[in-house]
């Protein structure tokens, strides 16, 4: 075969490959455009208009929707509530997951059963389990409250108490998330070479704390970062428990971002502010994702 025919056949192969590539990627690209890119552009445009659902005319209003959003006490409160919720759920679910993973990792016979139990909430329908939690913590009928009463802790109404409601929701959030994080930590722990612990033993780092501080924790760095990021995003999207249990009550103390967005956008059909909130939400999510990409570059040493 001469060089010329060779390059012709190579070219035709490349062309065939490119045609196939476009043919296979086009349907998905079409969906990406109409279900992802276009909606984001549209929601951004709407956030700059006074569009109302079903209206035939609309006009540009600049940043008025954003101004309204920032002036909206309910929105700011829901934002603050969401941050408080995240601030409880992330350390709680990450910290407990790490402890559980370390304890479970060292078990031999009972490892599988503990894994199953802790992972159970991850698979189950949170709505149904929220109904159960609501009942468990019911101030008059709930077994947890009656047990607490019997033990002399007095009456308490977790979801009715403005100071406790976010904590109550966060407990459910941790309950659901901890098994997921545990699995990720277990994967990270398994990847730590046993030799390193042996070397630490010989070097004298053989106490529980030293082994953790000198080997486990630094070696888990990338895993921990990843777990913190996914947990933050999951916690930031809290919606189901609020929608089922508190609906933002009492006194808006459990209003969270997505629940407010849902109310404003799909119950009040206040499209302008809702789209502004959507953009705010997107910005937050992107910031977390970028932070993760940046930190992963810096934190991985090998």
């Amino acid at each position: 075969m001469t060089a010329a025919t060779l390059s012709v056949s190579r070219n035709s192969q490349m062309r065939a490959e490119a045609i196939a590539g476009y043919a296979f990627a086009m349907p998905a690209l079409f969906l990406i455009l109409i279900l992802l890119i276009l909606p984001i552009i549209v929601v951004f445009m709407i956030s700059l208009t006074d569009y109302q659902l079903g209206a035939l005319t609309w006009s540009w209003v600049g940043l008025a929707n954003y101004a309204e959003m920032m002036a909206d006490k309910a929105f700011l409160r829901s934002l603050a509530n969401t941050f408080i919720y995240v601030a409880i759920v992330v350390p709680g679910s990450v910290g407990f997951a790490l402890i559980i993973a370390i304890l479970v990792q060292e078990r031999t016979k009972s490892k599988a059963i503990y894994q199953t139990i802790f992972f159970l909430p991850v698979t189950t329908t949170l709505i149904a389990m929220s109904v159960v939690w609501h009942f468990l913590l019911n101030p008059s009928l709930g077994p947890v409250t009656s047990l607490a009463r019997a033990l002399g802790f007095g009456d308490f109404d977790v979801f009715g108490d403005p100071d406790l409601v976010l904590v109550g929701l966060a407990v459910i959030g941790i309950w659901q998330l901890v098994g997921f994080n545990m699995i990720l930590f277990l994967a990270g722990l398994t990847a730590i070479p046993r030799d390193l612990y042996d070397a630490a033993d010989i070097d004298g780092a053989d106490g529980v704390w030293d082994r953790f501080a000198r080997v486990t924790w630094p070696m888990l760095g990338p895993t921990t970062l990843f777990v913190v990021v996914t947990s933050t995003i999951t916690a930031f999207r809290v919606f189901d428990t609020v929608a089922v249990i508190t609906r933002g009550n009492p006194m808006g103390r459990s209003d969270v971002l997505l629940f407010t967005l849902y109310k404003v956008g799909f119950q009040d059909f206040n499209i302008g502010p809702a789209s502004a909130m959507t953009i705010a939400f997107l910005v937050f999510v992107l910031v977390v994702a970028l932070a993760q990409a940046f930190l992963i570059d810096r934190r991985t040493h090998y």
Binding site: I32, L35, L36, L38, P39, F239, V285, A289
Partner: peptide, 23 residues
């Protein structure tokens, strides 16, 4: 380019596109 769009899409939750798709 398509792969970049996919990576971007990974970070976008459904709540972001909900409003325009609803409309």
């Amino acid at each position: 380019l398509i792969f970049a769009l996919v990576l971007f899409g990974l970070t976008v939750p459904v709540q972001v596109t909900a409003l325009p798709i609803y409309i």
